[in-house]
Design a protein around this nucleic acid. Structure first.
Length: 582
DNA sequence: GCCGTTTTCGGCCCGACTGTTTTCAGTCG
């Protein structure tokens, strides 16, 4: 039983409790337990067997009993009872902006509405406005919210959200009176998908806020205004992206940026810890009793608690607070550490630029090497290369390397398809001609989890495999990818010394950052690969670095942060270990 | 439901905004 499945069941219990009773803290305990289970790098079943589950904070007696039941039976009686008792349509109502569990219960009890459609109809027939506590505006907002849900995307990929945010932040900075402005929220934490945008801006004095806010809601990118206050406004931008802006005085900016960067879970733990030390943290500052402690910037918040600074990417309540107290936070990889690009395509297969153009683009970015990895023959849809094509391509690479000289190196690679049975798509003689081999799945996504897992493990055990490409095949917000037991794949890669790529294409970000720490614990190197099909795709590496940082990666974990000689030595070492039988 | 202790109950992050009501509850981040 995967941790994520156990977590999913506990999380669902939490949501159903929200809808069935008043004790929000009980619901939170379940959501919290779900996150704790999800964050365990070891299997919960193993933790239970070794008795270590009792030491995990957030999992009390009741939660451990639930976990035991799930592990033994695959089911949870409490969850079954809640599902039987609660209308499933009420869960969907939680997604309506401005409508929470209490008012949903009230609507259900007063009107008997069980689905979004029934609720919309109740709004149209004026039955919602008649309920005590509701009115004409609530009714209109609920109806608008239901229409918004059906017409808008709920989440957005990081890259387009970032581009839009950069435009709007620049516009906010240009508003007269604004001293500082920055994007906050999940985008600043580099989450792979974001729900909305948060931003913080500062002004010299309170009196300047209203004018700045008025200018913000009037920006050309603003489609509609949801809330407009002096210090806080909420709007919907073009493309349906919701955005919140907070305006504070400049002495509050550090605390406000920290507060609105989140995550909520990080703050709950941090503030609880601060309270134990007699310190209160809010979005305006840090206080000991009535005394306001000096906070010039975000780092001061942590320093006042005796902790190391925690980068925004790490603020997910996954052990970073304890590590900051212990001074054991990792030295995170940065874009400046990147030495080259591995896993790039050219016009030899489905790329849109020649090898020369890709190499020139890499040199312009200051990189020292480029790994060309065109598709293999099985990928006919992508004009995959035959062994004869490979020989001609490698002759071209030799000629280009001779021309470029010693300062830049084009590496001979392949993105070699993994067959249904786990075999690679080239014979050994051809595989031996490459400097390195990226092995990827592009077909037969519908096998069982056991079959896909075995398929990847067999590819890992091929002596020529250097890197497993996009290990789950997911496309964010589009498709889930094939089912795969990632802990088993990570363990196999670690045992064999094979790397797993972090595909930096913002539609993929595969391997998911939540697995990166488990991978590094197993000694699996994680190259950050752009999977670029054109020169502009190389810039995805910067996005991949953000995800790598969320996964606590250091330059030592990332082969393309290594100089060329070390990289080549590692390629040879992986192949040698493969030939020696792992 | 979990946790910690001034240790088996009481608190659980905290403040802005909205809508409805007229002092506050619900929602959100």
């Amino acid at each position: 039983m995967e941790n994520s499945r156990i977590a999913g069941m506990l999380d669902e219990v939490g949501t159903l409790i929200e809808l069935s009773e008043d004790n929000a803290f009980r619901a939170r305990a379940y959501h919290n337990a779900a996150r704790v289970v999800e964050n365990q790098t070891e299997d919960v079943a193993a933790l239970q067997a070794s008795g270590k589950l009792a030491n995990v904070a957030g999992l009390g007696k009741e939660m451990r009993a639930h976990i035991s039941e799930i592990l033994a039976t695959g089911r949870l009686t409490l969850l079954d009872e809640l599902i039987a008792a609660i209308e499933p349509g009420l869960i969907a109502m939680l997604r309506i902006p401005g409508l929470g569990p209490k008012r949903i219960r009230l609507l259900h009890q007063a009107l008997g509405v069980k689905t979004l459609d029934e609720l919309a109809e109740a709004c149209r027939t004026n039955r919602v406005a008649a309920i005590s506590g509701f009115g004409a505006k609530s009714q209109a907002n609920i109806l608008n919210g239901i229409e918004f849900l059906s017409s808008q995307q709920e989440h957005f990929n990081y890259a387009p959200a970032r581009e839009l945010a950069d435009v709007v932040i620049a516009a906010i900075r240009a508003i007269p009176g604004v001293l500082r402005a920055e994007v906050a929220g999940s985008l600043r934490r580099k989450k792979e998908v974001v729900h909305d945008l948060d931003a913080v801006a500062s002004v010299a004095q309170d009196g300047d806020r209203a004018a700045v806010m008025a200018a913000f809601v009037a920006l050309p990118q603003v489609q509609s205004v949801i809330a407009h206050g002096e210090s806080k406004s909420a709007v919907v931008l073009e493309g349906g992206v919701a955005m919140d802006l907070r305006v504070v005085t400049d002495d509050e900016y550090g605390s406000a940026l920290h507060h609105f960067t989140g995550s909520k879970e990080h703050h709950i733990v941090l503030r609880g810890m601060a309270l134990e030390r007699g310190i209160k943290i809010n979005e305006y500052g840090v206080w000991r009793g009535d005394e306001r402690l000096p906070v010039a910037n975000e780092a001061d918040v942590y320093a006042l608690l005796g902790m190391d600074y925690i980068e925004p990417e790490l603020r997910e309540e996954r052990g970073e607070i304890q590590a900051a107290l212990d001074h054991t936070l990792p030295h995170l990889v940065t874009a400046n550490d990147i030495q080259g690009a591995l896993h790039c395509h050219s016009t030899w297969s489905d790329g849109h630029a020649s090898i020369r153009e890709m190499a020139q683009a890499c040199r312009a970015l200051g990189y020292h090497y480029l790994g060309i990895c065109d598709h293999s023959q099985l990928a006919a849809y992508a004009h995959g290369l035959t062994p004869a094509d490979v020989r001609r391509q490698q002759a071209e690479i030799d000629a280009l390397n001779a021309e470029f000289g010693p300062d830049f190196r084009i590496l001979k690679g392949t993105e070699c398809d993994i067959h249904k049975d786990g075999a690679l798509d080239f014979d050994d003689a051809t595989l031996a001609t490459f400097d390195f081999v990226v092995a990827s799945i592009h077909s037969n996504f519908n096998l069982s989890e056991a079959e896909e897992t075995q398929r990847l493990i067999r590819a890992i055990q091929n002596p020529y495999t250097t890197i497993i490409g996009h290990p789950t095949g997911r496309l964010l917000l589009q498709r889930a990818g094939y089912p795969v037991d990632l802990p088993a794949v990570i363990a196999a890669a670690g045992a064999r010394g094979v790397a797993i790529e972090l595909n930096a294409n913002p539609a993929r970000f595969d391997l998911d950052w939540r697995w990166l720490r488990l991978a590094t614990e197993h000694g699996v190197p994680i190259p950050i690969c752009p999977d670029a099909h054109a020169p502009d795709g190389l810039t995805d590496i910067a996005y991949g670095v953000g995800i790598a940082r969320k996964g606590w990666l250091t330059p030592a974990n990332v082969p393309n942060a290594w100089p060329l000689d070390r990289l080549l030595a590692w390629f040879a070492e992986v192949r040698e270990r493969g030939r020696a039988g792992g």
